[in-house]
Amino acid sequence: MSTTSPNSQAPATGTARVKRGMAEQLKGGVIMDVVTPEQAKIAEDAGAVAVMALERVPADIRKDGGVARMSDPDMIEGIIDAVSIPVMAKSRIGHFVEAQVLQSLGVDYIDESEVLTPADEVNHSDKWAFTTPFVCGATNLGEALRRIAEGAAMIRSKGEAGTGNVVEAVRHLRQIKNEIAKLRGFDNNELYAAAKELRAPYELVKEVSELGKLPVVLFSAGGVATPADAALMRQLGAEGVFVGSGIFKSGDPAKRAAAIVKATTFYDDPKIIADASRNLGEAMVGINCDTLPETERYANRGW
């Protein structure tokens, strides 16, 4: 990876600042899962800040079962050509060759995602080795910091993708925010033990303790289906939201997409959220997470 050298003539690509800075530009926005160029255009027209190109939305991955992998390059390129907003795509956890392929296709962000079937049960990909930035999921602070240590330039709380149920998204975001708040009050002596407990590098733990936030942008994902869900995640401290199955598994995707964008910007204004929530047609059906067997929980993937 290139290093920063502000006074040299040669421009530096793939620096941490350029990768993390990209996520800063997405803040306050909605990133939408799309499976066709047409859906990508609907998302862009609705005000999405980026789209996630994938072959099947999580709800369908759940239904179909089997091994879920990186999408077909033709399909990803079709979506890149269709829109001018950034395009993200998913690689399997630890499948650094899928990530290399996605980088070669020119995607703007790679999501090393638990929604796909993991390729490695011990190691995640070394994300410092790439010019393309990575976003990774986390259920708690230690997991988030391990991903950042591996080079992730953006974190999303995992939630439980493809359920249309926001309960796990709330649990994971609250967990991360609470653990950050706890670190705030720690003195130097306590930070070493905290790092050990979090199974995360001391330097990152200290940085979070000082900043009072992650050193990268934090979005929420996994279960957002309504404008009020999006606003809830923002009020709980997410800097933006990913919406997967919630939009294109609903009755009127264009309208719901635009409504979720509005509610994400005016997350603290109940009147605007109320207006955005009117007449949206059917929401996706949804799954109750407490009846979901442990083996079918995507959030358990990744370590």
Binding site: S8, T13, V18, G21, D108
Partner: peptide
């Protein structure tokens, strides 16, 4: 011209 310097992989720092 929007995105004139390219996509994210071409994003850069320079003096």
């Amino acid at each position: 011209r929007r995105n004139a310097f390219g996509r994210q992989n071409e994003s850069f720092e320079a003096a």
